[in-house]
Design a protein around this nucleic acid. Structure first.
Lengths: 217, 217
DNA sequence: GTTTTCCTCGGGAAATTTGCCCAGGAGCCT
DNA sequence: AGGCTCCTGGGCAAATTTCCCGAGGAAAAC
């Protein structure tokens, strides 16, 4: 009996590559492919695969959302996230959504195969890179970091994400620019980012910034 | 007479996939792989491949810079950019650097193979997606502001968007931090933004940053 | 009731970045 | 040769960031 795999990734070439890589191994075969969350969901219902391999970044609803959907349908589904993002936030989101494994694309090729086997036999799978990053970042917490900001800090964060200057924010809240700058610093250090650009990316992943960033700049 | 290909991509699994896909076809074989610009350059010197397939987003100096380097060494080198970014701006920069083709990873698998053949026989190669985007962007209005950046400035912008610090960028390009800071300033003023956050939003609208900010932070 | 904790607000001082100007050199076009 | 743009970085004042600190208040814990 072979492990029946469903591949979900928006890049056809990449799927092709996985398929070939996977099928080189005994006992695993790809029974279906899908290029987005919607068709991935349909394919899951059709084929009832043993393991689903999902990329996170896909047009439309992302891979993590697909995980959540599939798990609602079948809470025993074994889903492996396979992505380029070595991000603790993503990994946390993925596991919270019900994924059983998270492997980055920069891992050696057979890590994918062994992760599929792990998940199939009920063991969670994490690649070395993600283990490191999670260990490093979530020694203390485990929740969405942004939730730990105080209300005031959060308000100021929103203004920062709207690309307002320190002085504009200070004026809007009737604060000293110094106070705003201090909040800005506190936000960055509490969220563990080193620059405003990292801050934007982090907040985008948390859904705090419009995906298309249609900011009036 | 087989076409000898060098693959440059930072993800081992992805390279593996390309290799398998490519080698399924008659008359093409992968003679070497590299995981970053530096080793890609070395591999080019060692093997003198007929065609080089390069990803743009790689740690350290990016793929476009590698194109420029290789072309300096051998101005007949045939280089194909193969990337996830469906961006007219990236494509323009790539061609300006000396690439002969630009294909997105979301293209059907054999587009990669036929692009390699095209390039090998001297014809430029563009995938359908990029043709569309270039057409759309060129008839809507002239060039975007980003295209007015010099090659060097563009490379540095790329690193900035990857949330690299001034010192990291300086180290990657072997420049004085002061020079990088000057470029950073020049970029912001030429693009008419007042902060790094506005810069990110602008570049997102230009397609230079992945829609969901898939940066590993 | 009191201590502890957290939030809010800002000062201070050192370190760093920003904004802008300048200049030499390489390489191109005419 | 003369004029371009590009790449490279120094200089320097002004602004910002970074980090530490304290005070006042509210809420929660003891």
């Amino acid at each position: 009996m072979t492990i029946r795999v469903l591949l979900v990734d928006d890049h056809a070439v990449v799927r092709e590559g996985y398929r070939r890589l996977i099928e080189k191994h005994q006992g695993i075969s790809v029974v279906a492919e899908a290029e987005d969350a919607a068709s991935g969901y349909q394919a899951f219902k059709c084929h009832g695969p043993d393991v689903v391999v999902v990329d996170v970044s896909m047009p439309g609803r992302g891979g993590i959302d697909l995980v959540r959907q599939i798990r609602q349908l079948d809470c025993d589904a074994r889903i492996l996230i396979f992505t380029m993002h070595a991000s603790a936030t993503y990994a946390q989101q993925a596991f919270r959504a019900g994924a059983r494994g998270y492997v980055t694309k920069s891992s050696p090729p057979d890590v994918l195969v062994s992760a599929i086997r792990s998940i199939y036999s009920g063991r969670p799978a994490l690649c070395a890179e993600i283990n490191e990053i999670i260990a490093a970042s979530s020694l203390s917490d485990g929740m969405s970091v942004v939730d730990e900001l105080s209300p005031r800090a959060f308000e100021i964060l929103r203004m920062i994400l709207e690309a307002k200057s320190t002085d504009e924010i200070a004026a809007a809240f009737n604060l000293s620019p110094k106070t705003v700058a201090n909040y800005h610093y506190e936000i960055k250090s509490k969220l563990g980012v080193r620059s405003d650009i990292e801050l934007v990316y982090l907040c985008m992943r948390q859904g705090l910034v419009a995906p298309l960033a249609e900011q009036a700049v």
